[in-house]
Write a protein that binds this DNA or RNA. Structure first.
Lengths: 205, 205
DNA sequence: CCTACCGATCGGTAGG
DNA sequence: CCTACCGATCGGTAGG
């Protein structure tokens, strides 16, 4: 039997991850020092190395837990077996709302993943691709002809663009709530789908 | 009269800016060393300091020239005095296509601007706000009721999200060309505008 | 006396 | 879990 961790071990570890996520999101991974992380959670720098092997592992843990939370979210919606329109709309709204609680984690996942080692980064990108794939599949249930026109993936990425870009401009305490934003994105995307011309992918090459 | 610069001065300077933009876009500003910039353009590091005061000035020049290019682009479209629909569509297409030629500059402008000193950063954000403002104005000409619903700025930012996010997934040599993408974004956004419900901004607070 | 650099090394700080 | 450090490398600059 392995020896028990000290009682506060997991809580302390989560504290460090949360502080690191906030700093990495604000300053970037490279511009953030381990001393800053230590100071932010009120411990000495060597303490960090008791919980994490190195700076990269901090980043890897933040990205890993967040991308798996996103995957769990889409799996949960999928399990509800909603009608196509309702499913895609629910995905959009759940996703947009999830940013309210995990802004820092999401910014780190999208902006700092390049600082991971190749193997670790590819492993996480594979999980990201699963998440994107579920959105693309849900989209094809709504408008199946998009798949043969090879527009389901581009349209999915335009949708992710709308959602992910919000962290550059949406103030958490501003007039526009995440709920209202989710409805706006849904309306815009669903309305736009009907107007998309299907000839484009063929035109290209 | 000021003495003339050496003939290759401007060309060398542009070379350095282009190499720095590429490296900053790929690795981030903080993770890129002046030695890497120097190596990328085949000069010694001290030579960089002949053209630029320090590393931050490199970043400032990249962002400054690109954001002014974007401003010039919107002013040029505005001067054409097109009908509202055609103007917004042209803005979207010109903007999307401009990324094909200036991907690195655009990534730096959107991702690395935080590493500038406060005053310099604010100066550039003010120019960015002018560009966004022109899009929002063009959007209000297409659907004036969006302004009173306070949705013209959020919708403009969703549009920028679709366009700006493309650098995370659009392969410059891939199947989908920038032209086809521009048409897709236009179709989706114009189609979606008709479906946007106007009650949302009021719901919020 | 100017420009356009180079080889070498500065003070300070990063991750560990 | 702290103080005290290391090998290395950072941005920036000296003399020639």
């Amino acid at each position: 039997m392995a020896r028990k961790r000290a009682p506060g071990f997991e809580a302390q570890r989560e504290d460090i991850l949360a502080a690191a996520a906030r700093l990495f999101a604000e300053q970037g991974f490279s511009a953030t020092s381990m001393n800053q992380v230590a100071e932010a959670c009120g411990v000495a720098k060597p303490t960090l190395y008791h919980y994490f092997q190195d700076k990269q592992e901090l980043l890897a843990q933040i990205c890993d837990s967040h991308v798996h939370a996103l995957l769990a979210l889409v799996e949960e919606v999928k399990a509800q077996q909603l009608a196509p329109d309702a499913q895609l709309r629910t995905l959009i709204e759940r996703f947009t709302r999830s940013y309210a609680d995990a802004q820092a984690q999401h910014r780190v996942l999208t902006s700092e993943i390049k600082f991971l080692a190749d193997a670790e980064r590819e492993r996480l990108l594979d999980v990201e691709r699963l998440v994107v794939g579920e959105f693309a599949t849900a989209l094809c249930l709504v408008r199946p002809e998009l798949r043969e026109a090879k527009l389901h993936k581009p349209l999915t990425m335009l949708l992710f663009g709308m959602i992910n870009w919000t962290f550059t401009w949406l103030r958490p305490d501003g007039e526009l709530s995440h709920e209202a934003l989710a409805a706006l994105v849904s309306d815009l995307f669903f309305g736009g789908l009907g107007a998309v011309q299907l000839r484009q992918a063929a035109v290209i090459q």
